[in-house]
Nucleic acid binder design. Structure first.
Lengths: 357, 357
DNA sequence: GGTTATTGCGTTAACGGTAACACAAAAGCC
DNA sequence: GGCTTTTGTGTTACCGTTAACGCAATAACC
């Protein structure tokens, strides 16, 4: 039962000053090998555990990062979080988790809390466009990184690193795939228009239509909220139209799953009667019985890159203006769109075979 | 651009001592309303953010908890974590996330790190039976709680609160369900035998067999590791037997999913040719196209209870010997076991309709 | 061998809070 | 009105580290 050993206890035993103990523990300082060994062995014997709080107070570094995320319940964020946490640990940092559960208003509270607790930097995955909280932090020059959700505010854009997939390209790939399969009436269920991600995926879809000489019909564009329910409702709404779409692109897999259910409930078959594309390639959508065609992105790697970038800023190894890292999305063809028609050659059939824990 | 405001800055502006500022900020002390208002308004104006590090150093409390978990990638743990984090926040605590990724050997490192960072307590979801790390902490009387994985060590058992489902009962329910459906050759794929959870679910299954006068045949019991792959291999192995089982109970849903895939790959249908029961009721297993029959447990609530219990210990509101909270599992009948035969009445058909984010 | 550099270690002061103690002023009491 | 109690505030110490500085003892140099 060792009662909170401090460097002073060690100092007393080793008959040196506590500063010398600190030196021995931290290496990197002029100290005789003999004394250092002695101190180290006493420390080990006493089962000494350094007090990071005291160290943090004087060093102004906690080796802790904040992660502000909507919810880890969404497998997209789960995988992202894994990349973040694993990389953080490898670099010697811990993660304090803050789930907003889609409530943007508490983000500011979380941010303040995290800063009070002295985190060295914050990873935001839930910054909306023009978010005042983020803008304020950017002005102060507080270290942070935006992942998967962008802020177009010029101040933010020039001060804060951003990591994300090319959502416009992703939306383009999804819709173009449907067009190439012969569809011309394509319904799109977007994400919340407040989020850059939803907005961009929608833009990409429209671009694909334009590129293939198709008109973007207003009725075929519905706004969703990235949750399953809105995909379900969107699907129902489409099917009630006098001329329903023959294919649907949902801006994320959750909504696609909802759409799937709505379509099946209406007695239609996928892909025979309705083609469906999602976005994100979350786990389980690849399972037998679903096998959703979707747009894949490197979620784990995104998380890893975010931490690497942030830590480089924190430790001063990277300076200068912010960097935007845009990753390439990938069309993953499974079974919810049927097979090619009209001579369309499927180029990419890589899929993800090994992403199941 | 406010540069690190401290209570001393406020003190100077308000022409009081820094102690008085501390008093004003923390309420709960004799202080004149007037001065308090003045100090508070200056604090607000200066955008003062308290330094929790400094406070923690003197108070010996960080209002932070550690969460040691195998991986949040498993939806079971994701939901558990959500309950944990949400409850922690409500009680004024933050969570530092530590994923072991099934590597028990780093748990000790994580524990030391967390204690160095001064967490007020730790939630372990990955303690194995007889884990020396946990035993050591128990001896020191460090506040912690075990969730979903038990340690039978007497010292631990008497000192550490435990929250978990009745896994024996769960295993019993699963296998009894299969027996009542008319199956007598029932294959079981257990979890790692090092984990209490796997062990107990297996025991429950054996009990059900015994209760219905069936013999537990050794060949029908395989050891898995809770990962999809071992469910897949188990399924293949069963199907290669000269007299394969007609029903399989996998000790968690991940393995059940693997088994599902193996069975389908061998050209058999579920439930017509093979009945299948999982355990945990993770999200997605309820989806159209899968609809796995499984044993449900209140994951979110378990997390919430764990935090409540731990915080009560930390704040001294609960004292005395440890408490074991055992929750009731629930048989959730979906579509992987077919329908009843031989007059078996399905009692429980509640299911979980609203657990999709 | 004396002067200068380097090495090894101790002293002291932070870091930003809270808490124990002291003490004057105000309030309560008879 | 003098005594005691309460109220409001300042002084000082401390939480466990690291860092700046100082200063002997030793090493290096010509």
């Amino acid at each position: 039962m060792d009662k909170k050993i401090t460097i002073k206890d060690i100092a007393r035993m080793a008959k040196v000053s506590h500063t010398t103990v600190s030196r021995a523990l931290n290496d990197k300082s002029r100290i005789k090998d003999g004394t250092k060994e002695k101190i180290l062995s006493i420390a080990r014997e006493l089962n000494y555990r350094p007090n990071f709080i005291a160290r943090s107070l004087v060093m102004r570094r906690t080796k802790t990062l904040g992660l502000v995320i909507t919810t880890i319940a969404n497998p997209f964020y789960t995988e992202l979080s894994q990349g973040i946490e694993t990389t953080a640990i490898r670099l010697g940092y811990n993660i304090i988790l803050c789930s907003t559960n889609y409530d943007l208003s508490i983000e500011k509270q979380y941010t303040d809390m995290l800063r009070s607790k002295g985190v060295d930097g914050i990873i935001f995955t839930s910054a909306h466009m023009g978010d005042p909280n983020i803008i304020g932090l950017a002005e102060e020059g507080f270290p942070m990184v935006l992942v998967n959700r962008r802020t177009y505010h010029p101040m933010v854009r020039e001060k804060i690193d951003y990591i994300g997939v090319d959502n416009i390209r992703g939306g383009f790939l999804a819709v173009e795939h449907l067009i190439k399969l012969g569809h011309s009436r394509i319904g799109v269920i977007g994400g919340s228009s407040e989020s850059s991600v939803g907005f961009e995926r929608l833009e990409g879809g429209k671009k694909a239509l334009a590129a293939h000489g198709l008109e973007a019909v207003g009725d075929y564009f519905l706004e969703g909220d990235f949750l399953k329910g809105s995909g379900y409702e969107g699907g129902k709404k489409f099917l009630k139209m006098s001329e329903p779409p023959t294919a649907i692109f949902a801006a994320n897999d959750y909504m696609a799953l909802g759409t799937y259910q709505a379509v099946v409930e209406e007695g239609m078959r996928i892909p025979e009667d309705m083609a469906l594309v999602g976005f994100n390639d979350i786990e389980f959508t690849s399972m037998k019985g679903i096998e959703l065609t979707t747009i894949g992105q490197k979620k784990y790697e995104m998380g890893a890159m975010a931490v690497n970038t942030l830590v480089e800023r924190i430790e001063g190894r990277k300076t200068g203006p912010s960097v935007e890292t845009i990753l390439e999305p990938e069309l993953i063809i499974r079974k919810t769109c049927g097979f090619y028609s009209k001579g369309y050659q499927i180029e990419s059939q890589k899929g993800t075979m090994n992403n199941e824990p």
